[in-house]
């Protein structure tokens, strides 16, 4: 995760250098997005009504080291999307899966364009469903519902949009069950042996800050690059690891995708 931070900073600094180059060329630094250039998924920038955007890509989460004991990347494929509504409102969401962990997020935000920056605020619901059958014969199922109130600020530069998003993580519900063991101990497993728990937490379990870049990569194809630094008592990607730590754990999520 530390390595990813360094990469991110280098990329950000690189963008700054480019902007300085633009100054020298006497070109306008900032422009409003034209219809062809409204490639915004993460940015708070308001776009034309009924306009939608979708990005397809991958996510690499580096799970919290106290839980995994070793920095293990957890990959996932994902779709991120945004659909603009009247009155600067927008629906945004995310779908992701690596088979073991499946996520779905949907939320609404209100956006505002200022001369250089755009601001946004919103709320989303985030569902996690996990299902793992371990190779040595037992099955774990997990469900949870989390809410993320968020605030977003985007900086519109030439060809590039930088976005910072701050989110709070409010865990509402989680349920975890162990079961369906294959009975390698020579017994016939009975349903009453299944153990698990259900909690209605409704508690602030952490927060996250996401930094992202949306920029053209090849011809008119845009890419979305970003990183999320999350501090959480219950990192969603590590649901199967029986978190016993009474601490907010640091995890990093690096995401990259092509904007379709």
């Amino acid at each position: 995760m530390k390595q990813l931070l360094v990469i991110w900073l280098v990329l950000l600094l690189s963008v700054r250098v480019t902007v300085k180059g633009a100054e020298g060329a006497d070109t306008a630094l900032v422009k409003p997005a034209t219809e062809d250039e409204q490639h915004y998924i993460m940015a708070a920038t308001a776009v034309d009504w009924w306009r939608g955007g979708l990005s397809a890509g991958v996510v690499f989460s580096v799970l919290p080291q106290p839980l995994t004991e070793y920095p293990i990347p957890a990959p996932m494929i994902e779709l991120r999307g945004r659909f603009a509504l009247p009155l600067n409102l927008a629906i945004y969401g995310r779908l992701g899966s690596n088979i073991a962990t499946n996520i779905g997020q949907i939320g609404a935000m209100w956006t505002l364009n200022l001369p250089v920056v755009s601001l946004g605020g919103g709320l989303s619901g985030f569902i996690t469903y996990g299902n793992i059958t371990y190779i040595d014969g037992f099955n774990v199922v997990h469900e949870r519902l989390t809410f993320y109130p968020m605030a977003t600020a985007s900086l519109r530069l030439e060809k590039v949009t930088l976005t910072a998003r701050i989110e709070a993580e409010v865990l509402s519900y989680r349920r975890s069950r162990l079961g369906d063991a294959e009975g390698d101990n020579g017994n016939d497993r009975k349903n009453q042996d299944v153990i698990g728990y259900t909690r209605y937490d409704r508690q602030l379990t952490g927060g996250a800050i996401t930094l992202s870049i949306e920029q053209p990569f090849w011809k008119n194809t845009h890419i979305l690059l970003g990183v999320t630094f999350a501090y959480s008592r219950t990192p969603y990607q590590a649901w199967f690891l029986y978190n016993t730590f009474d601490d907010r754990l640091f995890s990093t999520e690096f995401f990259a995708g092509f904007i379709l």
Partner: peptide, 22 residues
């Protein structure tokens, strides 16, 4: 499994917790 426990005359049987209370 318990058959192996008997086979080797083990003093302790130690199953994984995911198998439940058994």
């Amino acid at each position: 499994g318990v058959d192996r426990v008997r086979d080797v005359n083990a003093r302790v049987w130690a199953p994984r917790f995911t198998a439940g209370l058994q």
